[in-house]
Design a protein around this nucleic acid. Structure first.
Length: 577
RNA sequence: CGGGGCGUAGCGUAGUGGCUAGCGCGCCUGCUUUGGGAGCAGGAGAUCGGGAGUUCGAAUCUCCCCGCCCCGACCA
């Protein structure tokens, strides 16, 4: 039994000044976590209970699909990460250190290398596969900007698992098993989440989906269809392109004087003054970027998007990998005299030898208002397939609410979410690096294919707090609450002995109990109970005079009075639902 | 990485007119109080983020560093 009189807990009456998001404020105020360094937090007794409960749910569901738990060190030698080039690729994101002999070590940001090597060292036959291994372990990433308390920390607890299969069908089965387990985990954690398509990124591999906890404070933006079940991270959202039309059918191009129109807004205003019925969506804006190849070679790239949309640099970067996208600086314009700042149009790019990519919304036959490549002039009815021809297509324009679903055409919604899980078909990237083969039934080596699956355990605690709180404090789902019931002895007349007796009785029934035996004034006891967020509160106080106690539901706020003799059964019934 | 704001006791903050650093909460002692963050009295607790500098004298002015929060990273 947790007794508040001795529990290591100090609640705060006011929000910490450095906290912005609800989970950070409340987890600190309620005494669940304390910051020790940027992005690094200690878990206090109640917080640790929640964290462990989340981990338990995850372990149960992982075990249920036959995955086996192992534990790697957090402190790792450089060599395996050198082999996969991640020692370099991770850059400043990696915590590096040296031992007394000067050898390089790192604090593991993720463990694909170690799992691959472990399986390689132990298994050598197709009969051993498939196998899935997982661990619940502290990860380290030296984030450029840790934020929002434990939502994005530099040290965090993660469940990561890896599947090993002989072929693509096996990988798909392992992937589906993990996806199912994740669904059950987040259901049990009481979370409001969406499964969205994700980008595989530079890692290669194919299928990749993220589990996003829906929350306005989330760092990820996703689209979801209002009609069908399409949902995707905006970084991976595909576009429903308009039908191509015949370029020859378009009206002729004309050039218009448009002085002082460096932005889309000013351009549209001037064009309207001149009698052209256009909006920003009819303009084609051409963003100049600089691509830097790994070799250091730099070359310009122009990306065309409808004028009412922003360019998503991440999407561009994902498409030009391994090149990196850099801003096109003022000095660069001097080097490319054909590019007229503010009045760039695609008509001349081919002649200038500059690579031009367009968003899929720019289709053959579509006509645009765009720069005329002369200061103070724009061109109207610039038609793709007639007046310019792109070198390729890149989904560079941001998605907006109301855009057509790429699957069914219905309007899309936009939402924010916290990435709490990621399932990913890695394929053979790591197996290739470490030559992870097993001997097949024909006596020939078979390259193993892998899946990688992660859940941010500590982040899930914060995500639950983001989704489950009110103005009074936290409201834990029963599956993770630090205790099943909060018994508060309040008011005069020494209610403590009866509260103790009821608490002991509840424990005998198998419930976990937090007992407020501090003897504070009732207001303090109630405020703290609400702040801590245990789902059921049993108030033992003034009602005792009539042989009654009060049972409160933290989430709904409903309270009911029951005879003392029925209290235990009533609470047990509430907790067991 | 860039820009802005901020850093004073465990928490929230006042004080920048240069000279004994104040308040609220929390904490300790005593008495009173006990169904919505009680009252009275007494008390402990601060290298004013760190370092260097200017000065007779610095929380306050200057420089550097560290940390926190927000915004930005392209505007054709």
């Amino acid at each position: 039994m947790l007794r508040m009189s001795t529990l290591f807990l100090r609640t705060l009456r006011e929000d910490p000044a450095d906290a912005e998001v609800p989970s950070h404020k409340l987890l600190v105020r309620a005494g669940y976590v304390r910051r020790v360094a940027p992005g690094i937090y200690s878990w206090l007794p109640l917080g640790l209970k929640v964290l462990n409960h989340v981990a338990s749910v995850i372990r149960e569901e992982m075990d249920a699909i036959g995955a086996q738990e192992v534990q790697f060190p957090a402190l790792l030698p450089r060599e395996p990460y050198e082999a996969t080039n991640r020692w370099t690729e991770y850059g400043d994101g990696l915590f590096r250190l040296k031992d007394r002999k000067g050898n390089d070590y790192l604090l593991g940001p993720t463990h694909e290398e170690l799992f691959t090597l472990l399986v390689k060292s132990e298994y050598s036959s197709y009969k051993d596969l498939p196998v899935s291994l997982y661990q619940v372990q502290t990860k380290y990433r030296d984030e450029a900007r840790p934020r929002a308390g434990i939502l994005r920390g530099r040290e965090f607890l993660m469940k990561d698992s890896y599947s090993f299969d002989l072929d693509d069908e096996g990988l798909q089965r392992s992937y589906d098993a993990h996806r199912g387990a994740y669904t059950r985990i987040f259901e049990r954690l009481g979370m409001d989440y969406r499964i969205v398509s994700a980008v595989s990124g530079a890692m290669g591999g194919s299928a990749s989906e993220e589990f996003l906890a829906v929350a306005p404070t989330g760092e990820d933006t996703f689209v979801s269809c209002t009609a069908c079940d399409y949902a995707a991270n905006v970084e991976a959202a595909s576009v429903r392109a308009p039908e191509p039309t015949d370029p020859a059918a378009a009206p002729p191009q004309e050039v218009v004087d448009t002085p002082d129109t460096p932005t889309i807004e000013t351009l549209v205003a001037v064009m309207r003054d001149k009698g052209y019925d256009i909006g920003p969506e009819h303009t084609l804006k051409n963003v100049v970027l600089m691509l830097r190849q790994p070799t250091g070679e730099r070359s310009p790239l122009v990306v065309g998007v409808p004028g009412d949309r922003e360019v998503d640099l991440k999407a561009v970067e994902a498409n030009v990998y391994p090149a990196e996208v850099e801003p096109f600086e003022g000095g660069d314009f001097a080097k490319y005299a054909g590019l007229v700042r503010g009045y760039i149009g695609p008509q001349v790019l081919k002649n200038l030898g500059i690579r031009f990519l367009v968003d899929p919304r720019i289709t053959t036959g579509s006509a645009w208002v765009t720069g005329a490549n002369e200061p103070g002039k724009h061109a109207v009815n610039v038609v793709m397939g007639r007046d310019f021809e792109p070198d390729g297509v890149v989904p560079a324009a941001e998605v907006k609410a109301g855009d057509a679903c790429p699957r069914c055409g219905s309007p899309l919604d936009i939402g924010r979410g916290i990435e709490i899980g990621h399932v990913f078909q890695l394929g053979r990237k790591f197996a290739d690096v470490f030559s992870l083969d097993v001997l097949g039934p024909q006596g020939k080596p078979v390259r193993v294919t892998m899946g990688s699956y992660g859940i941010g355990v500590s982040r899930a605690v914060a995500a639950i707090a983001e989704q489950s709180h009110d103005e009074k404090g936290l409201v834990w789902p029963r599956s993770v609450a630090p205790a099943d019931v909060h018994v508060a002895a309040v008011g005069k007349g020494d209610p403590l002995p009866e509260a103790e007796r009821l608490a002991a009785e509840l424990e005998k029934q198998g419930l976990t109990v937090l007992l407020d035996d501090r003897g504070t004034s009732p207001g303090v006891a109630f405020k703290d109970a609400e702040l801590l967020g245990i789902p059921t509160i049993l108030v033992v106080g003034k009602g005792l005079a009539n042989g009654e106690v009060e049972i409160r539901d933290r989430r709904s706020g409903e309270a009911r009075t029951v005879p003392v003799g029925e209290a235990v059964a009533a609470v047990v019934a509430d907790v067991r639902g």
